[in-house]
Amino acid sequence: MSSPSANASEVLIVSARNGPIAKLTRDEAEQLFLGRRTTLSDGTPVALIDLPAGPVRDRFYLLLTGKNPIQTRAYWSRQVFTGRAQPPREAPSAEQAGNWIATTPGAIGYLPADHADSRLQALLPLR
C-alpha cells in the first residue's frame, strides 16, 4: 500500500483493511494517543499499538502531539500512575506491530510509510 506522496520520513496511522475502523480524525488520533479517550467519537473501542522505543516512535509522537520523547514519557507516566489511562500495547518490532494491527479487531497503530502492507489501510498520514 503506497500513495504517490508516501516517503520514508512519513508516518502513517493505520488500521486493518475491512476492519471496524475506516476513518479517524486528527483530533481523535491525538486524544487516543494521549490517553484522553479509549474509543472513537461513535463509541467504537480502540486498541492502540506502539512501536518499540526508537526514532519512528519519537517522530510519531512529535508529529501527532508536539511532544518530544522526554515530554512524552513524563506525560505518559503521569497518565498511567494516576490510573487515568493504560498505555498502548508495545510491539517488539514494526513487523509485529503490522501483524497485530492487521489481526486485532479495533487496533490502531502507526508505521513508517514503507512498512505498511496490503492488509492495512492508511487512516491518517503524518509528516
Binding site: 486498541a47 507516566s77 500512575f81 498505555p87 500495547r89 486485532t104 479495533g106
Partner: peptide, 17 residues
C-alpha cells in the same frame, strides 16, 4: 505481561515507578 486489550479474558499489565 501485556495481552490484547480486546481479548475476551481480562488482560493484566504490570508497571511501576
Amino acid at each position: 505481561t501485556a495481552t490484547s486489550t480486546l481479548a475476551d479474558a481480562p488482560s493484566i499489565h504490570l508497571s511501576g515507578f
